[in-house]
Design a protein around this nucleic acid. Sequence first.
RNA 1: CGAUGAGAGAUGACUGUCGCGGGUCGGGAAAGCCGACGCGAGGAAAGUCGGGACAGCGCAGAGCACCGUACUUCCCAACAGGAAGGUAUCCGAAAGGGUAACAGCAAGUGCCACAGAAAAUUACCGCCUCGAAAGAGGUAAGGGUGAAAACGUGAGGCAAGAGCUCACGCGGCGGGUGGCGACAUACCGCCGGGGUAAACCUUACGGGCUGCAAGUCCAAGUAUAGAGGCAAGGGCUUCUUCGGAAGCCGAACGGGCUGCUCGUCCGUCGCCUCAGGGUAGGGCGCUUGAGCCUGCGGGCGACCGCAGGUCUAGAGAAAUGACAGUCGCCCCGCAAGGGGAACAGAAUCCCGCUUAUAUCUCUCAUCGCCUU
RNA 2: GGUACCUUGCCCGAGCGGUUAGGGAUCGGUCUGCAAAACCGGGGACGGCGGUUCGAAUCCGCCAGGUACCU
Length: 134
Amino acid sequence: MIEDFPKYEHICKENDIQSLFAKGAGFSCYPYRVVYLFKPVGDKPVTCRLLLSVSKKRFHHAFKRNRVKRLIRESWRKNKQALYEICERDTISVDVALVYNATVIHSYEEMYRKTAKAVHELVNRYEKEIQATH
RNA sequence: CGAUGAGAGAUGACUGUCGCGGGUCGGGAAAGCCGACGCGAGGAAAGUCGGGACAGCGCAGAGCACCGUACUUCCCAACAGGAAGGUAUCCGAAAGGGUAACAGCAAGUGCCACAGAAAAUUACCGCCUCGAAAGAGGUAAGGGUGAAAACGUGAGGCAAGAGCUCACGCGGCGGGUGGCGACAUACCGCCGGGGUAAACCUUACGGGCUGCAAGUCCAAGUAUAGAGGCAAGGGCUUCUUCGGAAGCCGAACGGGCUGCUCGUCCGUCGCCUCAGGGUAGGGCGCUUGAGCCUGCGGGCGACCGCAGGUCUAGAGAAAUGACAGUCGCCCCGCAAGGGGAACAGAAUCCCGCUUAUAUCUCUCAUCGCCUU
RNA sequence: GGUACCUUGCCCGAGCGGUUAGGGAUCGGUCUGCAAAACCGGGGACGGCGGUUCGAAUCCGCCAGGUACCU
């Protein structure tokens, strides 16, 4: 059970972000808008990368945006294991963007449940896509 | 002990588990590997309002424009910052304290709505003189208008009046005296003034422009804008075999000298050689500095000097977090217990200012009460 | 991160120290069988807080909100 969140799991490159939002599929799962893109692993190990977005429009103060992003990161690293299991099984990588759409800051406990739900939903959608292609 | 005012400071502590960003060390051929140690948000990190450091560009020179500052002396790298004073004004019974864009409308120009006769060389009702009257002249005390009406009060004086004269008061200029100075003045002489400079402006002093997305290096890679050489010499239109030719217009045109002018310098068509733009990626800039702490000395003070100690974030779509517990702090409750903790997140770095802030601590001043 | 600028009714938009123009929209009326057009009339605003001034939308500070540019 690995619960870390190292640098290579961040999406930083401009090109990666553009291709994720251009090609990726998405769904809403309050308080998130989830955008994801499965892609072949290439020469690197299986990786589930994450992009966070908390808009200045919804939170004017920088310390509130930081707070939300830290809570999401914390809950993501605790919940990403389910996603890794299916990726390891099919040897495929995935880029995920979580856009925070709520206008209030939830407690950590609640945030944990919401993120678990979003990851669960993402896994379900992937399984359906796999079944459809077969 | 309490109240009021001013100033200074703090911005919870510790333990465990998991996680993040830098650093150092060890292992490893290397890794998105393993391990150890240590560091990791603020007083405002904010606004970007001043001032610097630093960097690039520019800089023969002169003038103008533009911008900033504005009581004095001192401090500071510098400032629109600070200290000590002066003056004005406000609060207070007093002690004392707060506030001030605080140079000049007695240099010039402009403006002063409505009302009013008149808003600056004024004269409506008045008052006085002359005149039969119409009117002419003198005058600015009183009335009325207005935010503001040609120093205020009293006396003398006069036809009536008026700084016309005198006393006191306000103010200006010159001199004396005191103070480094702003300035003060129960001193002397001369003078009499509407307001407005956050109106133009005047005076004095100061100011190159742009900002780390500054700038610079690397690998990859080529546009033609850079450099050099040969050489050539303006612009427009038409034709063209793309070499050039013809016609017309003008004595040039374009650019640099960071807004303008003078002045001054450079370039112009084509060919060859060198060099190597933007975008995306990585490195440097990037944290040792007008640094912090302690002690001693100097100064009313801001601050300065000396000695010793110390290293205290450095990211890059951007780390500094989550959970649990214990002890402090505040609130509710007799108690068990329950609840709460403001404003707010570094982005090149400093010094200030401004704005947002819960709670606590300390110092000083004044007043009140109690005890000795 | 840095640098310039803007804010006047529901919307657009003049105003540069002296009662905040005008147009569109809206509401009421006239006209019409009803509406549109036309005509008449009404309500409604200087982003906020201070300062200068007799007087501030205007001049000067400080906040708030918004826009553009630099990569």
